[in-house]
Amino acid sequence: MAEEQNAQQPKFALQRIYLKDLSFESPNAPATFQQEWKPQVNMDLNTENKQLSENQWEVILTLTITAKVDDKSAFLVEIQQAGVFLIEGLNPQQLAQTLGAFCPNLLFPYARETVDTMVVKGSFPALMLQPVNFDAIYAEAVRRKQQAAAGEEAAEAPKH
């Protein structure tokens, strides 16, 4: 009976966090260092996941950070921070939220620290990326998906 209860309990374990890919470019150095440092910083992020085995998932958080001064590129950082997670006993909706929000939330601090280190090593001032609300991003993605599905259903409905 205890085994049956344990089998039904959700399980989550972080098995590994690793840097999958990293790129840093400073195409206009050293001229960039001679300008007043008032950058326009933009961050794009994306997440993806891949099932590795029955209960094992790879989640990849991709960040692309660009900094421009006077419309000239100061630096570009691209990073793929990844993790392998053991996940069992979740329904499809819980699994999707775990992969789309919870896991990226665990990966982000590692990516943020690596980005900051790369920017400093590139001789730029430290770049402390603001925290990201992955739960809100995931909820918005689900809402948009539902709206798109409702729009498709309305378009396919027979007209009288």
Rank of each mutant, 00 (worst) to 15 (best):
M128T: 15
M1S: 15
N49Q: 10
P10E: 14
A149C: 08
M118E: 10
W57D: 03
Q81P: 03
R143K: 15
V41E: 03
T66Q: 11
I79F: 02
V41K: 00
A149N: 12
R112C: 00
P92A: 04
V84F: 04
E25S: 07
K121I: 00
P30D: 04
N91H: 06
A96N: 14
A149S: 11
Q146F: 08
Q34S: 12
E88H: 10
L86D: 01
C103V: 13
T98A: 13
T47H: 05
A67Y: 07
A139V: 03
Q147P: 00
A74E: 07
L129N: 06
P27L: 05
P27R: 12
I79R: 01
W57M: 07
E140K: 15
W37M: 07
V84G: 07
Q146V: 12
N42A: 11
K68Y: 09
P125L: 03
S26R: 04
V41L: 02
Q130E: 15
R143F: 05
G122D: 02
I65K: 00
F102V: 09
L106Q: 08
L90W: 03
A126K: 14
M1L: 09
Q35W: 06
K20I: 11
K121N: 13
E153Q: 13
Q15R: 15
E140Y: 12
T117I: 04
F134V: 01
G100P: 03
Q51T: 08
G151C: 10
A29I: 02
Q80P: 00
E113W: 01
D21I: 10
E88D: 11
T98I: 10
Q81N: 01
S26Y: 00
L22E: 10
Q147K: 13
H160L: 15
L86R: 12
C103S: 03
A149T: 09
N6Q: 15
Q5H: 15
P27T: 11
P27M: 07
Y138K: 08
W57F: 14
E48K: 12
P109T: 07
N49L: 01
Q34E: 11
E88Q: 13
A31F: 02
F12A: 05
S26L: 01
C103R: 04
D116Q: 14
Q9C: 09
L19G: 10
T47F: 03
D21H: 12
T114Q: 10
V41G: 00
L76W: 08
L106P: 01
D44P: 06
W37C: 06
A74K: 03
D116M: 07
L86F: 07
L45E: 02
N6E: 13
P125W: 04
L52T: 04
D44Q: 13
K145L: 10
V69Q: 14
T64E: 12
R112N: 05
A2C: 05
